[in-house]
């Protein structure tokens, strides 16, 4: 079938290749740099004031070398690296020794996944709908007003925007908790008090991701729709006196949505990075905060693990979106 050959296979190849290239890069970048993670770790320990006698340093170097998978030639290391990855083994965290990295990631993942999925879904959908309607009625006052508003919000980087929300609603008007994923000491359960507590904690990080996301999707959708307004099939529908509501929903939004699906696939990595940064601002207990702690403690293995894991996760997400795309575009489905 043409669809499989032209659409499916290239995407699967791309999937495997991106993972391969990405992880290989992650493996080699540190090895090509002049710094040595083992020496670094020891220097870090020293700078924290620990006294280390020469013998224990030697022992430590050996330990660390083994732990970081730095034994043997680069090639041996590389092979061993992949072997461990396939076993789901990312090594152990150095500063939460000897907890395996994968276990830390597993604990943090649900928070990030929940935050990311919910906010992306809301932001994407709302942005598409708003942008679609505003793009169709782009000569109206309210549509232009939204434009100006988007112009102000859009350029904010994740960190700065999250930070402004934190200042506004955490300190000036302290309406929401500013840190953590749930109140300390609360036991996770399927009860309303716990769920509402989680939602309250998620509110500010979610809001900052949603507002930035909606703005961006709004703008791109509005641009697409403004061009679609001139498309033959929209003009024809108007010429044919089709009701405006129908034109907006079935003609304009339905078609304008397609490039946004592709864009979502292309941008999911950046959205993910944004979520990590936002988590850091609000010390939300997901991968972002895990990463932050890893950076602060110089936990090289953990940073590596998060990076490799994220590459696989995001590439997979992209593959899933790409595979869903034909459901929305019959031109790909039947060709």
């Amino acid at each position: 079938m043409l669809f499989i050959r032209r659409y499916l296979i290239p995407r699967l190849i791309q999937y495997v290749l991106v993972i391969f290239v990405g992880i290989t890069a992650v493996f080699f970048i540190p090895r090509l740099l002049p710094t040595d993670p083992v020496a670094r770790t020891i220097a870090e320990l020293r700078s924290r004031g620990s006294y280390l006698d020469p013998a224990s340093i030697d022992a430590m170097v050996a330990d660390l070398t083994e732990m970081y998978g730095l034994e043997g030639s680069s090639f041996d290391q590389y092979i061993a690296f992949w072997q461990r990855l396939f076993r789901g083994d990312f090594g152990v965290s150095f500063f939460q020794f000897p907890t395996p990295v994968i276990q830390l990631i597993k604990a943090a993942l649900p928070w990030t996944l929940g935050l990311l999925l919910v906010t992306t879904a809301i932001a994407w959908t709302a942005g598409i709908l708003l942008g679609g309607v505003a793009g169709y009625f782009n000569r109206q006052g309210w549509s232009r007003a939204l434009d100006v508003l988007a112009m102000v919000v859009r350029p904010m980087p994740y960190y700065v925007f999250a930070f402004i929300l934190l200042l506004l609603f955490g300190y000036i008007f302290p309406l929401f908790p500013v840190a953590g994923g749930a109140s300390i000491g609360r036991q996770p359960s399927f009860s309303w008090p716990y769920i509402s507590d989680v939602l309250r904690h998620a509110f500010l990080p979610a809001m900052s991701l949603i507002i930035l996301g909606v703005t961006a999707w709004f703008q791109t959708m509005k641009l697409v729709v403004q061009n679609l307004n001139a498309a033959d099939f929209v003009q024809y529908a108007r010429f044919g006196g089709i009701k405006e509501r129908r034109i907006v929903s079935r003609y304009v939004i339905r078609n304008g949505m397609l490039p946004q699906i592709t864009a979502l696939a292309l941008l999911i990595g950046q959205i993910f990075s944004g979520a990590l940064i936002t988590e850091i601002v609000f010390t939300y207990p997901g991968l972002g905060t895990l990463l932050y702690n890893a950076i602060m403690t110089g936990d090289y293995n953990l940073i590596m693990g998060i990076t490799v894991f994220s590459i696989v996760a995001i590439t997979t997400a992209i593959l899933v979106i790409d595979l869903l795309y034909p459901l929305f575009d019959p031109r790909i489905r039947y060709n």
């Binding site: 498309a231 033959d232 099939f233 003009q235 024809y236 529908a237 010429f239 044919g240 079935r250 003609y251 339905r254 078609n255 397609l258 929305f328 575009d329 019959p330 031109r331």
Partner: peptide, 14 residues
Amino acid sequence: YVPQGSMNVLNPVV
């Protein structure tokens, strides 16, 4: 109205 090219006048996704 009968358009010039019918190529793009029909909604492509329905």
